[in-house]
Amino acid sequence: MTATTNQHVLLSVRQACRTFGSYRAVHDVTFDLTEGEVLGIAGPNGAGKSTLFNLITGVPFNASGGRIVYAGRHIERLPAHKIARLGLRRTFQADQVFPELTALENVRLAAHYLNGRRNSRSTALQALERVGLLHSAHLRGGDLSVLARKKLMIAGALVGDPKVLMLDEPAGGLDNDDQDDLATLVETLNADGTTFVIIEHVLHLLRRVANRMIVMVAGEVLVVGSPDDVLSDPRVIDAYLGESNR
């Protein structure tokens, strides 16, 4: 288990909604994220987990309704780049990097636009070092391994010590050793003060790193609680396996 939490709410989501025509991808989602915690979000495919990330971070769209307050500021209508500059950062599913830029250029770009042009190189090198990619700084993003690309994505989000990192399925496509490596990185960064929200299908990873879990189904929050309680909840087992397989 990672660092202990305190009661300072960094991110407050209230009745967040996102509709596409008549389809409600996310409906009435409410939760708080306290400083220092690792909040896991799980749920079957199509549950609205990534859509929830999208509407919080503003990329590629904002919420259709509800309120989202980050560090005391309403962000539900802010464009993505401004939300990121406030210190609420995210990664994406799969291993998305800028393939033609080197690892250093990938992170330096983020350092320049998120953290200001001064010292962007040293800031980028620092972020690469924190994720263990300093030795690959000169390699093109497209030439890195899957784990390295995922770490590079995290490094890009890490520049300038953001308060919150939102990771979207960071363990997808990784073997057990790489998943363990990634979990250790999350624990280390969390111990250094970074607060996390992690969407993940690899539930044992969430059980290891998360203080608290939310399970979403059909765009709504089904259960909130400790990982052990949530993962043994019959409603969660139904949601994943279907009632007939219990």
């Binding site: 590629p60 998305q96 800028f98 830029l101 770009l109 998120l114 962007s120 890009g156």
Partner: peptide, 22 residues
Amino acid sequence: PFGHSLVALRDNEQLARSRGVN
């Protein structure tokens, strides 16, 4: 960084925007 931001927007607009690129 400006040139890199153009390449970044071309290759992955969502990632670029989430890295502070307007």
